[in-house]
Design a protein around this nucleic acid. Sequence first.
RNA 1: GGUCUCGUAGCUCAGUGGAUAGAGCAUCCGCCUUCUAAGCGGACGGUCGCAGGUUCGAUCCCUGCCGAGAUCACCA
Length: 615
Amino acid sequence: MSILDHIKSAVATAVSQLYATPTEANAVQVNPTPSEFTGDYTIVIFPFVRAAKKAPEATGAEIGAYLQENMPFVKGFNVIKGFLNLEISNTWWLDFLADMNNNADYGRQPRNGRKVMVEYSSPNTNKPLHLGHVRNCLLGWSCSQILDAVGYDVVKVQIINDRGVAICKSMYAWLTFGEGKTPESEGIKSDHFVGDYYVLFENKSRAEYAAWQDTDEAKALFASRTKTELTEKEFFGEYKNKWFNTHSKLGAEVRDMLLKWEAGDPDTVALWQQMNNWVYAGFDTTYHRMGVAFDKLYFESNTYLLGKDLVEEGINKGIFYQKEDSSVWIDLTDAGYDHKLVLRSDGTSVYITQDLGTARMRYEDFGAEKVVYTVADEQNYHFSVLFEILKRFEEPYAAGLYHLSYGMVELPHGARMKTREGTVVDADDLMDEVERLAKEASAEKIAELSPEEQQDTIQKIGLAALKFFMLRVNPRKRMVFNPEESVELLGQTGPFIQYSFVRTHGLMKRVSAEQIDMSNFNGYTDILPIEKELLKALYEYPAAVQQAADEYDPSHLASYCYNLAKEFNRFWHDVKVMSAETPEARAFRLQLSKATGKVLESGMKLLGIDMPERM
RNA sequence: GGUCUCGUAGCUCAGUGGAUAGAGCAUCCGCCUUCUAAGCGGACGGUCGCAGGUUCGAUCCCUGCCGAGAUCACCA
């Protein structure tokens, strides 16, 4: 039981006894005391003045006296307006510091025996990973680490969208224009190689469309448009998909290829394998560099036919209904959604059918009671519907479904990233760039390290900048990706936190090199305000991890790490550690530094960020 | 049009039913003979989108409006 829980329950008892008003412990508000007031923790008294029938000050004084009387670690208190500020005894803080440094798992909860699946990344295989995938991967990875830290067994999965029109475009372009080239022959990273053919296809297609727009047929179509307010450009913009499916020669070729693939045509399947293998090899490199990994891969080519048995089950259970054309639907109007198609009239599945089937299959595979889907917010509606349907099926995991929805990463000026327009920010390029800047900034400072160590340090710094930039923002929010700011190394950044860690690490190296005794810190009695602030920040760590887990939101943890680092830097600036006034003060400050280093390293690890030893 | 999300300093973002709403960047001013200045401090900067309501107390909860985005396919 934490000290805050003790305080809450003691306040509840006090109110119950003093004012004969039964009060729940969780109705008591306790906050860290702001530094401009005296005290460590503050109880908000306003809620109890009605029961006390006294002024807030008098009520606070009575409760304060009760707490001081009954709680050994409450050393004193003061009341300002409706706020009761408690002072916690130094011995309690010293014990806390000792316990924390003896606990290798500070901030981690014991295993709870429960299982959660986290799905993230889930790319298409027709092109390399870009900035949006980076945000996705960092969120998914960090959430899985955080859930692990609070006790869950986490299964990290991705579902690879390896089939469909998109990959066929790359396949067709390579087959038609590739002249047998390979990533090896061209010296191009293999996923980029495949992506280049996708872009090539889109270029050819665009040219075909432009030429078609000059035909009499197209002109007649434009002249006969019903929405007369549309300009020619707008009209043909809207018409593009229709054209691709009805007029385009390239479109016909791709559809033909998809049909062959579905029929299992050996040449087509072999080509598909080849293209996908190139892409996977490239993805693996990128994932590895990004520091993310998966426990199990699902492939859409294996799951896209799933879910039909659920359709039948749904009809039998009365969850779904069938129309005369034999298409199958669900009426979700009572839940605030619309009627939703779950099976086409030709009997083929749609996206949500697959997802229903995949959900059940994965439960059969792992039995996870919670499933986190890390998918961009453009699919909010889809997941609301999916979860609602699974709830109506009374799937055992239905209550544990969560859509970790995140806002699109936009380019400055509100532009969305589009492969066809060449406005994507490529994940590999991005990592190159942050490392280049990290190298620029670090070169002199780490010059005496070995080349390998230098490279390692630079990678850690660059990735920290990128990862922290993306994870410190609440996932729900759209974020504007400004290339210059994202790789900033000063201020509220990953490298700032790394730098604070490096300071603690430097102290610990001296402790072992000079065999400094850190054990007599208990003799330090007059804890300074700056030291107390640091202790309070350290104390908050488990709660920060828990909040990040409860809300599936690593940004809470990112804020926490930044605040702790900031606090440590203030401490570092204000007091001497190695040359402290007394051996006890030195021991105490070293213990504090050690604890800070531990928490920073562990907290950042949960964000997927590694610490360098020097920088 | 319906639904959902977002709106806090010039910019990027935190934040909580409670004390004077906080950081970073930018601008300006200080601080390295002292454990790494990738640091620390200070100044400047706010009608917490607008209007009502609930409350002892609202930036936070509720309603309406305004603005931005997403979505509402027999696409994935």
